[in-house]
């Protein structure tokens, strides 16, 4: 049984707990054991915190990585932002002794040390590469017939030179995962366009962020999508919270929730009441 330290991040546990719940239930059904990464903090956010202080970002990320190292487990996250920060920090720390030494100088202040061994994975990656489409299909008990717009976000596949998951311009991993549930992933224009929220733009220039979201929603609507399926709570938040202002009404669900639905989770367990755009199954 595959075993991971479950890194929660901020948006999922504190805004959309249904994503956390679905992940726990779905992973259990798929034979993935999740161990809570107790005492972890924010990843910290790659767009904002890293933009303010790279030292703070590096040291705080190293602390999270060290907590997982102590558990002897690789990290799994359901958020592109957390994946971006933790993967990139691990990439720097695990491959560059001088960066590791710098982080450990800070960690020493709180009696911790990171040896540089933690690996970081995204849940979608684990499902696709470790569990596999066929094994997922075998666990689908309530196939769905939804027509969906998949939304990869940016920090899942990019920067692709270090992530090395698949072609970031023409990805199919998420589409394949979604279609394992019986859903149909529809083609659309500008499929890999950013949601607009990242890099601190949502906080500093909300209207600019919404301009990105609007283009995405127009393309999704034109494709005939009934659902938006994302792999990032921050993209999820951006799509879910801005549709009312933008005049759209396409329900937004995280991949873990789609799997939850297709694996027969009770509707209440999906935590849909936290969503702004009503989700009707």
């Amino acid at each position: 049984m595959a075993k991971y330290a479950f890194f929660l991040g901020c948006i999922a546990p504190l805004r959309y707990p249904g994503l956390e719940k679905s992940t726990r239930v779905v992973c259990q059904k798929l034979g993935i054991e999740l161990v809570d990464l107790n005492d972890a903090g924010c990843c910290p956010a790659p767009g904002v915190i890293k933009s303010f202080s790279k030292d703070t970002w590096l040291a705080s990320a190293a602390r999270n990585l060290a907590l997982a190292e102590k558990q002897g487990l690789p990290i799994v996250t359901i958020c592109n932002g957390c994946y971006g920060s933790l993967f990139e920090a691990a990439h720097e720390l695990n491959n560059h002794p001088e960066v590791l030494a710098k982080a450990n100088k800070f960690l020493k202040e709180i009696g911790m040390e990171y040896k540089g061994t933690t690996k970081v994975h995204h849940l979608a990656e684990v499902m696709y590469k470790e569990v596999g489409i066929d094994a997922i299909k075998a666990k689908i008990t309530s196939p769905v017939k939804y027509k969906v717009a998949t939304f990869y976000g940016c920090h899942f596949l990019k920067p692709s030179d270090i992530k090395q998951l698949e072609d970031s311009e023409n990805p199919h991993m998420l589409d394949d995962l979604v279609e394992a549930t019986g859903a149909v992933s529809l083609p659309r224009k500008q499929k890999t366009l950013c949601c607009g929220a990242g890099g601190g733009v949502r906080a500093a220039f909300g209207d600019v962020a919404k301009e990105f979201t609007k283009t995405n929603l127009e393309n999704m609507k034109a494709s005939g999508a009934q659902f938006i399926v994302d792999v990032c709570p921050f993209c999820h938040l951006q799509f879910d919270s801005s549709q009312k202002d933008l005049g759209f009404n396409i329900p937004v669900i995280h991949l873990s929730q789609l799997f939850g639905i297709a694996m027969g989770m009770d509707e209440k367990e999906l935590g849909l009441s936290a969503h702004t755009v009503p989700v009707k199954l």
């Binding site: 546990p13 972890a40 202040e109 911790m112």
Partner: peptide
């Protein structure tokens, strides 16, 4: 959630760490 929110000592450590980085 079982993060720093649930452990005061862990939160104090995180603040100390952030202080060390300015």
């Amino acid at each position: 959630p079982p993060t720093v929110l649930a452990n005061k000592k862990a939160m104090a450590d995180l603040v100390k760490l952030m202080d060390a980085t300015g």
